[in-house]
Write a protein that binds this DNA or RNA. Structure first.
Lengths: 218, 218
DNA sequence: TGACATGTGAGACTGGGTTTCACCAGAACG
DNA sequence: CGTTCTGGTGAAACCCAGTCTCACATGTCA
């Protein structure tokens, strides 16, 4: 027995796929799902919300990761917090692809997606502001804002490439993109002759060995 | 005799100010303006649009400025194109402040404002992509995206400071912010011993003299 | 004068979202 | 065992943004 919520999501995506988002009414969705309008609006609040599964969770996890950052280690915190977003999308798989198709074609949904991304950016910005303030330096607000925008933008570039099927190894591209953005950021740099390697747990050792050799050869 | 459009805008801002955006219905607006609902929706298309005066104009001017850029001079093009946006807001004056008050409190309007900003960002991105491609170098897409995001973000930081009344010299802060963002961008750098000065026409010479002396002293 | 464009008004209609009341299951408790 | 409380549900009325269609009034041009 599936829950009402699941049936509504399923019915909505199916109908959106068949006849488009605008042409689909909430009444059609609830009819196919076998529930009432009341149930729909109680569960989602708005028609748009069927598509965007609760990112309060994700937002909370990002905040949690960011709060463990320090002015010395904040670049890693930013990288991993952005990685949480990428992880979320990769795990959603087919659902993320369906949503991408919709957000590309329906302006209202595109705006909604952008707004949620800016929600993440806001978290990055606020934490970055605190870290940069502790490090000292001029124009903390501006640089915190720029840092947050760059991290989110870099993430989005990689994410969109994956959504368009233009890459098979999003994590590799993600790491490169984050390096582009974060190496220029202020703070203590790795001493020459010292290489800091960040490993994602669950990764196959053989897969990372070439990268390790490469890093140590420089 | 004022036009219908002007009366509707006036009535809308007054009502939004008196009782808030959501609590104001289109019927109230057209009643006060002495026109019909038909006229309203023909003129603006949607309730939100009363607040955002057509930025197709601005978008076109930005595009025009960007198309005159070259891979050698693109940083100036970006800076001045962003300057067009700032100019627009500064010239709107009181109207921009009213809009800012609304966009801060009404989510729907905030999203709308963000979407229009992303429209500008898109122009920057597409032109930056072309310039960076001509210059050569890795990851053109990523860096074009980052450059556009940084320019827009830097502009927004200054704009918001002005909207909040936190600065009396937005142009000075704008120049600094753009320098922060653009000096690290790829391309030919100014030769040591050569100082390039960009002057806005209509500016008082006495105002810029100190900055000129300062620049030449380095 | 007649044809045509433009701006306007009136009113019906669709559909998203809210609100209110009612119902019913199951858990908790005496 | 009956009751009471609670969470999930349904029914229906309601509000309002936005669309559509028809009508009318003012031009302007031929």
């Amino acid at each position: 027995m599936s829950t009402s919520r699941e049936r509504m999501v399923e019915a909505a995506f199916a109908l959106f796929d068949e006849q488009g988002y605008d042409a689909t009414t909430v009444d059609q969705i609830v009819d196919r799902a076998g529930v009432s309008r009341s149930t729909f609006f109680r569960a989602f609040g708005a028609k748009e919300d069927v598509i965007f599964p609760r990112h309060e969770d994700l937002q909370a996890r990002i905040a949690a990761r960011l709060t463990t950052g320090t002015p010395q280690s904040y670049r890693v915190a930013l990288r991993e917090a952005a990685g949480l977003v990428l992880t979320q999308y990769l795990e959603e798989g087919q659902l993320a692809l369906s949503r991408y198709r919709l957000t590309r074609t329906v302006p209202a949904l595109r705006d909604r997606e952008i707004a949620s991304m800016l929600g993440y950016q806001r978290l990055f910005r606020e934490h970055a502001r605190a870290w940069l303030a502790e490090l000292g330096g001029p124009d903390v607000d501006l640089h915190a804002e720029l840092l947050a925008a760059s991290v989110v933008t870099a993430h989005n570039v990689v994410l969109r490439r994956w959504l368009r099927g233009e890459t098979d190894d999003p994590w590799h591209e993600f790491d490169d993109a984050m390096s582009s953005v974060l190496t220029a950021a202020p703070g203590p740099q790795a001493t020459s002759g010292t290489t800091v390697v960040v490993l994602r747990s669950g990764q196959d050792l053989d897969d990372v060995l070439p990268a390790l050799r490469n890093a140590l050869r420089d």
